[in-house]
Design a protein around this nucleic acid. Structure first.
Lengths: 334, 334
DNA sequence: ACCCTCCGTGCATACGAAAGCATAATGGCA
DNA sequence: TGCCATTATGCTTTCGTATGCACGGAGGGT
């Protein structure tokens, strides 16, 4: 049925190994032979089998990207740049989601013969990094780290962004500030919380426990948390959200309750996703170069694969504050 | 390095083929032996190699999903249900995007040893279906068809949705109606255009060529088209958009120009994506069961793989009109 | 008690490509 | 003219799993 390198060899009048070498542009094959082989391959519509290649060479040039949820816009926006960068480096992307339990995930990552994995979802207490290390499968962290297994990583340094955002908020008269934080078992949520609290402290403010909610990085979290926060007798005038997707939920909750944004409530996100700058949204947010970071993760994993003993790199991305419609002066208290 | 079935065989005191059979729960292996083998596999952390399996059996239980663009929300919302349904059926999903030319795409689909492909992007004039057929690789159309290669398909029947939407619009006093249509080389755009024109004709209306714009199914198309339509001296009072993602762009364009929606301009989308019902959006749209349709595509491709000679199925999904904020009475002309 | 059947397992091999090694052909130089 | 170096190619084996086939052993029927 399928055409193999043997068929090509027969047509070109050479041996199967020569076909293999010729098509991979091995310098030991003469140009004349390469031309013959290419012509034969073309004529037969030959496509090398990845399975055969993988089995023989032990490499697949395939990289896994592990994410939580494809429907989440945040992940959506990292897939494209990772894919693009991997393509440039001659690798293919294989998407994996956390629909199953950790053991099944690790098993799939290994079974598929991936050359490496980008972890974009790991909680600080996940066993996935451990398992991958035990199996000798290279990996890098994207926008995450864990304390007990060190590896290459791309991380966001949120301090500068929060400092700018908080000092601007203070200048606008906000004193009662709330937060919808991410899951406390993620390094991302942890570092953002620390940076936010530090920036508030610098300005003589703090987060009241009543004004804090927590949940996964999704729209629903923002919606429910904001609904809950707004039902207090005297709610905060400004909400910092764990990320933009959470902030969309906050906007929805405010809209549903007839709370004016930013008149009654200001909202600040984190990530500066494309939709944050849409005219119908205009979300104030803390920005960094997400696309570059995704590309860098791709570069790191291929580097690790090709130079297994290279020193471990942690690449940091700086943040800045982008002010848009959803932040304005605190309402006058009466 | 990696643990193979041979290692497991040695530890369990059986032959390699017996390990293979035991772990796949072959009825010809006794329960006692299966238990021994499973224990040995567990102890060694054995994971079967997909490459070896693929090479030997000629099957990968892997299905490709070909989409245009991951960042497009429409595709985002079909990936999850397809993934879920395939998992239930014991298959894995491999995502492919149209970043490269058609030849490269087809080559990748084939090289990866996919058992089948779901085409979610095909234009009516694409050679991809032809090539796949020539290579004997099964495929199904998702939300698309082409005229010259018949195959299983899931399609949307837009007539009912447009009839309901148009008659409602007419009742609200709209007479000047515009449209932002999709690419005319997609069956989707074609069938929606036909259905819209038919519904308008039933109500004694028609689309003026001046009130039509066309472009890819993305936000930018909606934005630019709407900007262009609104710059006419006397613009339409209602826009039908090729899909919801295009409609988001239309909303943005209106917002940027200070055109009130729905006060000055009503907007209707197509697809009823989750964000369409967000309080901050509230988009009127034509709805159908996208999740079910995605699941059905998964079911169709596995059926085709397992029963290559089954008769070709075209599964249709009915549409309805969902009225939300962005549609209201036509402004009084003066 | 014998034969046949069926069950469980092992043996041998195939899948497609890659890589080490061997070898034929070529050319240069003495 | 002969030898060696070099280049180009072929031969053989390998990767890990699945499968057709052979075979030994147990059990049942007569």
């Amino acid at each position: 049925m399928a055409i193999t390198s043997r068929d090509v060899a027969r047509l070109a009048g050479v041996s199967q190994p020569t076909v293999s070498r010729a098509l991979r542009d091995d310098p030991r094959v003469s140009e004349a032979t390469k031309a013959k082989v290419r012509a034969a391959a073309e004529q037969l519509g030959y496509v090398p089998s990845e399975a055969g290649r993988a089995l023989s060479s032990g490499r697949t040039r395939r990289i896994g990207l592990l994410i939580t949820d494809i429907e989440n816009q945040f992940y959506t926006h990292i897939i494209a740049p990772v894919h693009l960068q991997l393509e440039r480096l001659g690798y293919q992307l294989m998407l994996h989601t956390e629909t199953a339990d950790n053991d099944t995930i690790v098993e799939r990552l290994i079974a598929n013969g991936l050359d490496g994995v980008i972890l974009a979802t790991t909680t600080v207490d996940s066993v996935v990094p451990l398992r991958l290390r035990d199996h000798g499968l290279p990996f890098v962290y994207f926008n995450r780290t864990t304390s007990f297994v060190d590896a290459d990583a791309t991380v966001v340094e949120p301090t500068a962004g929060f400092e700018a955002a908080v000092s601007r908020a203070v200048a606008l008269g906000h004193t009662r500030i709330g937060a919808v934080l991410g899951p406390s078992n993620t390094s991302t949520a942890q570092s953002r919380e620390v940076a936010l609290r530090a920036a508030l402290a610098t300005n003589g403010l703090s987060l009241s426990p009543d004004d804090i909610r927590r949940g996964p990085f999704d729209t629903r979290t923002g919606d429910e948390a904001t609904t809950s926060l707004l039902s207090q007798p005297s709610p905060p005038t400004l909400l910092f959200c764990a990320n933009d997707v959470v902030a969309y939920g906050a906007l929805n909750a405010a809209s549903r309750r007839g709370v004016s944004v930013p008149g009654d409530l200001s909202i600040v996100g984190f990530d500066d996703l494309p939709a944050a700058s849409w005219p119908i949204i205009e979300l104030s947010t803390i920005a960094y170069d997400l696309t570059a970071m995704a590309g860098e993760a791709a570069r790191l994993i291929t580097r690790r694969i090709e130079q297994p003993d290279a020193s471990v790199l942690h690449v940091e991305y700086e943040t800045s504050f982008v002010e848009r419609r959803t932040l304005s002066s605190a309402p006058l208290s009466d």
